Structure formats: structure tokens, C-alpha cells
Simulated scan of single mutants.
Amino acid sequence: MFRDISLSAMYMGLLAAFVGYAASFAIVLSGLIAMGADDQQAATGVFFATISMGICSIWLPAVTRIPAAVAWSTPGAAFLASTAMLPGGFGEAVGALICCAVMILLTGLIPALGKVVASIPKPIANGLLAGVLLKLCFAPALALGDIPLLVLPVLIAWLAGLVWHRLAAMPLAVAAFAVVLAFVVDVPAGSALSAPALFPEMILVAPVFTLQAIFSVALPLYLVTMAGQNIPGFAVLELNGYKVERSPLIRRTGGVSLLAAPFGSIPVNMSAITAAMMAGEDAGRDPDTRYTSAIVSGLAYIGLACAAGIVTSIAALAPAALITAVAGLALIPALVGSLTAAFGEPKNLEAPALTFLIAASGMSLFGISGAFWAVITGAVIWAVKRPR
């Protein structure tokens, strides 16, 4: 394995880890906080989610010898950020995270479950994903109206990144965010920023299991993770000529997610964006050695996990609107992509449209969130209207 590592693989692995972390850590934080996590619980959740990414990013490529990139569930975190807090608080949310991880693990153990998820019409899955992302994508515009002097530098840096290179947009936005905080936030003496700890306090959350949490959070979280992350991640690897055995990869990410879930970690899954970075020629001329770039990204994720305490301390000190604005900027490409895919079939627009609208509305029925009803409604309409 060490003979296969090249400078290009190391560079691309480090770049992929930085882009993957910088582009979405604010989304993960927003999701945990929206579910009722306090600062320490959020720090623990971010730490274990990042460690899980690191472990899987080392384990999977080492076993399969393909650049199997792993990320945390960004659309899943966006779903949590846009969902009302459960009555049982963060304990009930952790129960839902555990149930979601069990579903992912069972999908890897029972191939028929994977076929059921894959059988969901793509316009319906993308309509659900777009509805989940929409609310958080409003955040940059809303924050611009409330705190324009703080948000404008972030927006300008994001736009400059888009002009330069699409993958540079969020890292530059995060850098501008850090600069803004340096000028406007007073760091209290004794805080994690003035005396950073190597690891956050490890807090094990007592889970609470309810049917409401399973249908309102666990099941939609599972669906957006599978449809929005795992399936596109597999597709990227296959498009680059790699043979992918899906069930073992889902089993491993599901198992690691299950071990981390009691600490408030969101699931980890296959990644499409970082896989595209590490499966191409930029990661090495020989396709058989590009898996080492994914291993390097895993080592980088383990190092970034040590920043979990600092990251959550920043979130506690920064204006909440600024944090959600950064998270919303990171989700705009995913929103555009999901909307485009949802309405790509002109003869059947009603089903994805209702899926999107119900998921975006924030409604609930019988205590169950709109994301669940969105899938049910969209699937029924799709089946009724589908040409026979």
C-alpha cells in the first residue's frame, strides 16, 4: 500500500478532506443544535461523525482498493436542521439516529432492502431532497437582511470562489466567516477558543425510542442519506470505471454509524463530490493506486476531529443567523441538482412537485413530519399517473 502512495494522491486526499469538512461542518452543527443538543453534546456529535468518516475512509479503500470516499450525511444534517425538535429533546433524536443507522446496516445485510430504496422513482427521491434542503437554503438571504455587514463578506468570498473554481467556493466562504468572527466576536477567557482542548468531552446520550421519532426523523433521514448520498456516491465510482460491491460498503458505513450514533453522531455514507475528486486523474495516473488518496483523506479527517470542540465553541459565540447562512450556501448546489433531477420528466411533474412542496412546508400529521408524508404522497401519485 505504501508503494502506491504518490504526491498527487496525497495532495488530492488532503484537498478532498478539507473541502468535505469545510463545506458542511456548519450544516452538521445546525442539525444537531436544531435537534436540541447543547454545546458539549454538539461537540461530541461532530467529533464522532468526523472520526467515523476517518475510520471508514481508511477501512473501505484499504479493503476494496478503490477510492471509496466517505462523508457524513450532509442532506441528512440539513433535514435535521429543518425539522422541529422532537418532544423528547436530544435523547429522542439520538434514538432516531440509532434507528437510522440500524436501517442502513440492514440494507447492507439484506440486499432486497437496497432494491426497495433504489426502486423509489428518482424524481420522487430528488423532490424529497429538494424540499428538505429548501428551508436552509433561504438562510443566506434572510441573514443578509438581518446582519448584512456580517454576511456580505462571506457572500463575496463565496462568489469569488465560484468564479475561480466551484470547489473553492465554500472553503473561501469559511475563511471569510473566520475573518468576520475575528473582528466581531469577543472570546471569553477560559473558553475553548482561548485554551483549545485536544478532544471534546465525550458525552453518551441516553436514547429515547418512539414511533414518532422513527417515522418523523429516522425514516426520512435514512431515505435522504441513501438517495442523496449513497446512490450518487456509488454512481460516481462506477462512472470512473471501478467495480463496486454495494452491500459490503453499506454494511460497513452502517455499522460504524451505529457505533457512533449513541454519541449524537449523524450517519456516514458514500460521497459523490469527494469521490469525483479522488477517482479522477488528478489523484494519480494509475487508477489502481488512486485508493490511497481516500486513505489520506481518512487520516486527515481523524486529525480534523480534534477541532470539534473549537468548531462548536465558534458556533456558540457567533450569531446563529451567520452559522445557518454558511450552511445554506453549502447546500445551494445540492438544491439546484435535486430540483433539476426532480422535474426532468415533463410528463409527470405533479408527483415530484407535491413531494417537494409537502417536504418543504414543514407540516406534520398525526405527529409525523412532512418528509414521510411527502414520499407517500409522491409515490402514490407517481404510481397512479405512470403510463401502463
Rank of each mutant, 00 (worst) to 15 (best):
A160K: 10
P153N: 06
L136M: 11
L149M: 15
C137R: 03
P140C: 10
A130C: 07
A160Q: 05
V151D: 02
C137G: 04
L152E: 05
L162T: 09
V154P: 01
V132I: 09
V151I: 08
A130Q: 00
L128T: 08
G161N: 09
I156G: 03
V151H: 05
G161C: 11
W158R: 06
I124W: 07
A130D: 01
I147T: 09
P153I: 00
P140H: 09
W158S: 02
L152N: 04
L136Y: 09
D146N: 13
L129Y: 05
C137W: 08
P153L: 07
G145E: 00
L155Y: 10
D146H: 07
N126L: 10
V151K: 02
L152R: 14
I156V: 09
L159N: 04
L150I: 09
I124N: 05
P148Q: 14
N126E: 13
V154K: 12
V154N: 06
L155T: 03
V151C: 07
W158Y: 15
A130V: 01
P140V: 08
L152K: 13
L144Q: 02
L155I: 12
I147L: 13
G127Q: 07
W158T: 00
C137D: 05
V154L: 15
I156E: 00
I124Q: 11
I124L: 14
L152H: 08
A125C: 09
L134K: 01
P148G: 11
G161L: 06
W158E: 07
I124P: 01
L159M: 14
I156R: 01
L136H: 12
I147H: 14
L134I: 00
G131W: 05
V151Y: 08
L149R: 13
G127M: 02
L155Q: 03
L162M: 10
I147F: 14
W158G: 01
V132L: 03
L150G: 11
A139D: 07
L128A: 11
A157N: 11
W158M: 00
C137V: 13
L162G: 07
